[in-house]
Simulated scan of single mutants.
Amino acid sequence: MADETGLFIYGVVPADVEATPDAAGVGDPPGEVAVIRHGDLGALVSEVPLDAPLGRSADLRAYQELLDGTAAVAPVLPVRFGTVVTGPDAVLDLLRPHHDRFAAALAEFEGRAQYVVHGRFDERTLLRGVLDENPAAARLAEQVRGRPESASREHRIRLGELISQAVELRRETENQRLLEATADHVVSTQLRPPSHELDAAHLALLVDTDREAALVDVLEEYAQHRRGLLRLRLLGPLAPYDFVAAHQLAG
């Protein structure tokens, strides 16, 4: 008896979008990507066994590559990773009641892409700055220097708290500086949570594609100005993952 299969949904696109022959979906082997249409909408899907575990790094990579590749040529509303339904009728049950809202959202993202700005502090430079500016932290650092951890535990805990608070304040400042620096070049922004204790900034930016070059120039200038204190990375263009929550796609 053949394994039961379902449809993994990647995202919602305009109805005229076609899946390219080389488009690969999740799973092992990768599923063939197809489009299920209703009115002005289409859903990018691929067949998967209902009992197959999904969540390998290769699956997440296939999901992102398909959506980011689609976003380069057409607007797309990503559906949360791991959304699997029983068949084409269930896909239509997603598209039909939300047709006009999804169509309006696609129009909103036409000609736009997401970028992610991720900055990380240089640890030595950061700590030196914290100790220079915080006499209490500097005294604690002097008290624990060269002492066994067991004999300076309380001082080390307090020093860690002071450093953590200082990093958080610097992170808030850095995010705000980046928001101000990029304000004239973005449509919308979303603050992302830090992914590491030394994160300096983590922002998602929605950008008109005709402003991408200007945004890159601004961020390169910003990174040069902050050189030595932090390293800045720019990821994109991407599908608008951080900006679809308001449209309440299934997942």
Rank of each mutant, 00 (worst) to 15 (best):
P78W: 04
G119R: 05
A72V: 00
L54N: 03
G119M: 02
G55Y: 06
R96Y: 00
A137M: 09
V45R: 02
L92E: 12
L131S: 00
L77F: 07
P97V: 09
A19N: 04
D122H: 14
R139Y: 04
G31N: 06
V73K: 12
L60W: 06
A72R: 13
G25C: 09
Y63W: 10
V117H: 08
E123A: 15
R80H: 13
H118D: 12
L126C: 11
A136Q: 15
L95G: 06
D100T: 15
G25D: 07
L140N: 07
L44K: 03
G11E: 04
H99D: 06
R56W: 10
V13M: 07
V76R: 01
A19M: 02
G69Y: 05
G69N: 09
P97R: 04
D93Y: 02
E18L: 11
F109L: 07
L41H: 06
V130Q: 06
R101W: 05
G42W: 03
H38P: 00
T70I: 11
V35P: 09
E110D: 15
P14F: 03
F121A: 02
G87T: 05
A113D: 00
E133Y: 01
L127G: 04
V33Y: 05
D122V: 11
A43E: 03
T83R: 14
A52D: 11
D100P: 07
R56P: 00
D68Q: 02
D93R: 14
V35K: 07
D28M: 08
A137P: 09
R128D: 15
V45Q: 03
L140V: 02
G42V: 01
